[in-house]
Amino acid sequence: MHATVGDRVRIRGRVVGMREHVGEILEVRGARGEPPYRVRFDDGHEALIFPGPDCVIEQRGPVD
């Protein structure tokens, strides 16, 4: 998994009824875009994550 600052992280709920978590990558600490990532989630909390199979990285669009 590879990411850059500004990409979005989408972590799907693992059980029925668990909501999805979405956030923005603030920092990439691994070499060549690899985890761990420091993420600010939409509810405002920040965490250092090592994404698992329930996680999708959405690349940010081109910056004008």
Results as ranks from 00 to 15, higher is better:
27 E>K: 04
49 I>Q: 04
58 E>N: 09
25 I>S: 05
58 E>A: 13
54 D>E: 10
45 H>R: 14
37 Y>E: 06
32 R>Y: 15
2 H>R: 15
43 D>L: 06
53 P>R: 07
30 G>T: 08
16 V>M: 10
12 R>V: 12
52 G>H: 08
35 P>Q: 02
46 E>M: 08
57 I>E: 01
23 G>K: 01
8 R>H: 12
20 E>Y: 01
22 V>A: 08
35 P>D: 05
1 M>E: 12
12 R>S: 10
3 A>T: 00
33 G>M: 15
36 P>D: 09
45 H>N: 13
24 E>V: 07
9 V>N: 00
64 D>N: 14
41 F>G: 03
49 I>T: 05
64 D>K: 09
11 I>W: 02
18 M>H: 06
55 C>S: 00
59 Q>P: 01
15 V>W: 10
3 A>P: 05
51 P>C: 02
45 H>G: 07
7 D>C: 06
44 G>M: 10
35 P>L: 05
37 Y>I: 08
54 D>K: 10
57 I>A: 01
46 E>K: 04
55 C>W: 13
5 V>T: 08
33 G>P: 03
57 I>F: 03
46 E>A: 05
22 V>M: 08
10 R>G: 00
30 G>S: 06
10 R>N: 03
49 I>L: 03
63 V>C: 11
3 A>H: 04
27 E>L: 05
46 E>V: 08
32 R>C: 02
45 H>K: 13
17 G>M: 04
47 A>P: 09
50 F>D: 06
10 R>Y: 07
31 A>E: 15
24 E>Q: 09
5 V>W: 05
40 R>D: 11
38 R>A: 05
1 M>P: 04
13 G>L: 00
39 V>T: 05
45 H>T: 14
46 E>H: 04
3 A>F: 01
50 F>H: 12
53 P>G: 11
32 R>M: 10
54 D>H: 10
16 V>N: 13
16 V>K: 11
8 R>M: 08
13 G>C: 01
39 V>E: 07
55 C>E: 07
2 H>G: 15
26 L>I: 07
30 G>I: 15
20 E>H: 01
4 T>S: 07
36 P>H: 07
29 R>H: 14
56 V>Q: 06
24 E>P: 02
56 V>A: 08
61 G>I: 03
53 P>T: 09
26 L>D: 13
11 I>Q: 00
